[in-house]
Design a protein around this nucleic acid. Structure first.
Lengths: 322, 322
DNA sequence: CCTATTATACTCATTTGGAGAATAATAGGC
DNA sequence: GCCTATTATTCTCCAAATGAGTATAATAGG
């Protein structure tokens, strides 16, 4: 198929061998449990569920589901593809064979009796403590990260590079009067990586280099997690995906807290209600819930019909898009 | 890396062999030339530039660039990843080795002296004639596609399926009083595929089955093109990517025509101006252009600084996001 | 019965977005 | 040189969407 259309192609001697690659499937599985966004991890909570794509797998998605199930006992519902990487030096000990990593984002509820597998749910803010702005700007930002970023910018000899570095940091972290944009989670991680403020950026063993900022993960798993967080934070604003994380019935405040957990910032309650209700995403169950210490709240459920009515149409959330 | 964290893993005998895959890189390269959105094709204009990911490639992106350059003489500027596929039956004659297809979207200008390679630029509406609504609803829709879709829905015996099929069609194509949403290009193609209204859906040789709707392409290349179109139509609304397709200087109307070519619909001129100007994306060059038969238009250029100022911030375009 | 607490419903001002009218500056025909 | 067609550019108006704050309702607990 390619040959017939590529007259310029020079047939290399080892063409057959040179194409051999192996593909890894990596899962970012998210749940929200009592106000905290959790990610499903394996090992010492330093790795995401993952495994090679094998001949027996029907598709990439089913291969991913199989690995997650085998490693954590969790069967996934909603999943979507995140990104495919293939950096040559991603795994240092494989000079002949290349590894392609295909990552996915999965949304579930944290529950399910899951036998004896070795896994754990961790707050994603354990890995990204600077991302949680629900209680205001986290101390680690002004106290540690911003000074370090400033130093990193200043250490460049070229003034253009100094300016450019600082400008990027200011945009990503909302400095110099700029606003915080929760969607930039990936850019922020990559900036910290460049500035060598995360353990993964340092050569040598991760365990030996205590992380300045957040828990580290193996290989590029923390970067993949950041990718998933950024994607989810963007997506909840225009697709009704939050409901994948909710129990069958819930109150509006519970829904709001879930959104806030993901976004890492608070939203205006009356406006949140208004937006959710006028979009016809949910319906009352008739029951109420009276244990939060005030007036009882109505219970709602997601209108499953929404998924059919508008495969693509949206949920709008009052998190202004920048 | 996986073994240490997966106690449940059963070591298969042929684990080494079963993981062997090969990866293809596929490029959707877009330009806009005098009011038409063009896609770069090879062969009989029935294939996208593509080739295997090889050991010699520094990265997926550079491998892709190398293939496009070799096959078409074109060197790419802006590229972004689209999607990674691995359907088992994607290539029917490969039972042992799986093929993973990693697709990219590239934006350029159609120009460049490109030697002797065999390629051509085609309007993407040759492949998707139902997608161009700039001059109103294209005849193929009410005349051919809608009746066929109706028939396809009606041929289901289960009334629920009938309803569901028609509902999907109505949403995707803006029927029954719904509005046309240009972003749904991929869903529309997939629906037509399901309904067997595109040649690729039929078993047997493509050439022997004349396409009801639009030109066909080999394998799943038309689907990948649809993915690229949908992505681009979404993206121009919130990122300043249109400028990758513009010449160094241009008038506001030229910019507008480019956006319209991509979106497949017209926009309100004064509002377009207002939006572009108030976002500070462009600056006057000082020159004017006086050959379109009316008052001379000011020339503008893209403010490159925008890319640094807001790596992520947006272009808003007056194409309501549904 | 009073108070703290949360739920829910309104109000108001500002911003955005869609649509059309009015004015400006050319070329070309006469 | 004047009139007309054509495109460019600027404004105005109105309706919808959004941000922020206030008022009222319904509980539990002392």
């Amino acid at each position: 198929m390619h040959d017939k259309t590529t007259p310029a192609k020079k047939p290399t001697a080892r063409s057959k061998r040179s194409r051999a690659v192996s593909a890894d499937l990596i899962a970012v599985v998210i749940a929200v449990t009592n106000g905290g966004p959790r990610v499903l991890t394996i090992g010492q909570a330093d790795a995401l569920p993952s495994g090679p794509f094998e001949l027996g797998h029907r598709s990439l998605q089913s291969g991913l589901r199989a690995w997650v199930e085998r490693q954590t006992g969790h069967s996934l519902g909603y999943i979507e593809q995140l990104y495919t990487f293939a950096d040559r030096d991603r795994i240092g000990d494989e000079p002949v064979q290349r590894v392609i990593s295909i990552s996915y984002l999965g949304l579930t509820r944290e529950e399910q009796a899951d036998g004896q597998t070795m896994h754990s749910w961790r707050s994603w803010y354990d890995y990204f403590p600077w991302e949680d702005h629900r209680a205001g700007v986290p101390a680690i930002l002004p106290d540690i990260l911003v000074p370090r970023l400033r130093a990193w910018a200043d250490e460049a000899s070229d003034p253009d590079i100094r300016h450019h570095r600082w400008q990027r940091a200011a945009i990503a972290f909302g400095l110099d009067g700029r606003v915080w944009n929760e969607e930039l989670a990936l850019q922020r991680y990559e900036l910290l990586y460049e500035a060598e403020l995360v353990a993964e950026a340092k050569p040598g063993n991760i365990a030996s280099a205590p992380s300045i900022a957040g828990l580290a993960m193996i290989a590029d798993h923390r970067r993949i997690l950041a990718t998933g967080i950024a994607r989810l934070r963007t997506k909840i604003k225009y697709r009704p995906v939050v409901f994948e994380l909710m129990p069958p019935t819930f109150t509006l405040l519970q829904l709001q807290r879930t959104v806030e957990a993901l976004a890492g910032r608070l939203v205006h309650k009356p406006n949140f209600r208004r937006l959710i209700e006028e979009q016809d995403l949910i319906e009352e169950t008739g029951e109420t819930m009276s244990d939060t210490g005030g007036r009882p709240a109505k219970r709602f459920r997601f209108r499953q019909a929404v998924l059919a009515e508008r495969t693509v149409a949206g949920t709008k959330l009052p998190l202004s898009r920048v």
